[in-house]
């Protein structure tokens, strides 16, 4: 039962991350996601400290606020200070993350949060951390409810805004012409990123959530040209990552989140090498084939 709870939690997190991540990698915003996932840390710690609990709402508010501040600061240094984008990202998220770690060390003992949790989460504790109602009924693991509802929100978001997200991702200028507010959808997507990051934070930590945001969609992207199929493949890969990650971690007795990112990386590597349309191996063979064809006299 324990294994099922953990795998289920991992799958829920991996699927919502992957769905949001699909849009991010197509919009060339992978590193912005990396920045946000690091930079929400001080917001989460402060929310922890003020509310004194792991209630999701204060955490969400804290992280959301920091997510907005991060995107704002990156833009601000880039536009007003003429700092190149990559450096602007690098400077902004590192100091916010540093601030978060320092806050954790300062409040150590006062908040139920430590550096390990930040780095690789506590998905192993999912089965222990139960949601018990005031009347004493045990409703099952709390994390399942949180990540489950976040996944529902993400799916609803993509379902409702599919056309808008699709167009603003692939052809922003056309989207603007037919009257879609590209800035609004940009910020809605950033909001979705912050939401999934916060929800995944407890389970897989701030850094490894990046692996779940990027690796499954990047793998799916190499398997298909069709965006809808890419979303479906991403979900399937997310679930495989969660299952295999759990068994790898229990086999070598290590962090489950670490194992999940490792598996995600391995799956990517396999697809990168052997994808039927994009893989390095087949591509080499194809280009050799076309070379021999070209050499024939016309």
């Amino acid at each position: 039962m324990e294994a099922i709870y953990i795998i289920l939690a991992g799958s829920l997190v991996a699927v919502s991350c992957g769905l949001v991540g699909s849009y991010l990698i197509l919009r060339k915003m992978a590193m912005v996601a990396d920045a946000i996932s690091h930079a929400v840390l001080p917001g989460i710690v402060i929310a922890f400290f003020i509310s004194g609990s792991r209630d999701s709402l204060p955490m969400l508010l804290g992280a959301g606020a920091l997510g907005i501040i991060t995107t704002f600061l990156i833009e601000f240094f880039h536009k007003k200070g003429n700092l190149q984008t990559d450096a602007s990202i690098g400077v902004t998220f590192t100091w916010l993350f540093a601030l978060g770690v320092i806050l954790i060390s300062t409040f150590a003992g006062k908040v139920d949060l430590d550096q390990d949790c930040v780095l690789y989460g506590e998905i192993a504790y999912v089965p222990i951390d139960l949601w018990i109602t005031d009347t004493g009924t045990i409703m099952g693991p709390r994390v399942l409810y949180i990540s489950g509802s976040v996944l529902l929100v993400v799916i609803a978001f993509i379902f409702i805004g599919y056309k808008e997200l699709f167009l603003t991702t692939f052809d922003p200028s056309y989207a603007a012409i037919i009257g879609i507010n590209t800035t609004l959808w940009h910020y809605l997507l950033m909001g979705a990123v912050s939401l999934t990051t916060v929800a995944s934070f407890e389970s897989v930590g701030a850094i490894l959530v990046v692996a779940l945001l990027i690796a499954p969609p990047a793998t799916a992207y190499l398997l298909t040209e069709d965006f809808k199929k890419m979303l479906i493949f991403t979900c399937i890969i997310g679930i495989i990552v969660s299952v295999l990650g759990y068994y790898l971690a229990s086999y070598i007795d290590g962090s489950i989140a670490g194992a999940m990112s490792t598996v995600a990386g391995l799956i990517f590597l396999v697809v990168f090498l052997f994808s039927p349309t994009q893989g390095v191996v087949f591509r080499n063979r194809r280009s050799k084939l076309s070379m021999t064809l070209n050499e024939e006299p016309i």
């Binding site: 990698i25 060339k28 915003m29 992978a30 590193m31 996601a33 990396d34 780095l119 690789y120 850094i207 490894l208 990046v210 692996a211 945001l213 990027i214 690796a215 990047a218 992207y221 190499l222 790898l248 971690a249 070598i252 290590g254 962090s255 989140a257 670490g258 194992a259 999940m260 990112s261 490792t262 995600a264 990386g265 990517f268 990168f272 994009q278 390095v280």
Partner: peptide, 22 residues
């Protein structure tokens, strides 16, 4: 591959770090 540099960076850093944590 058709992946862009930012995706490649994010993918590599998070996967390597995850392996390290494991």
């Amino acid at each position: 591959s058709k992946l862009k540099e930012d995706t490649a960076i994010g993918l590599t850093l998070s996967v390597f770090f995850g392996l390290g944590i494991l």
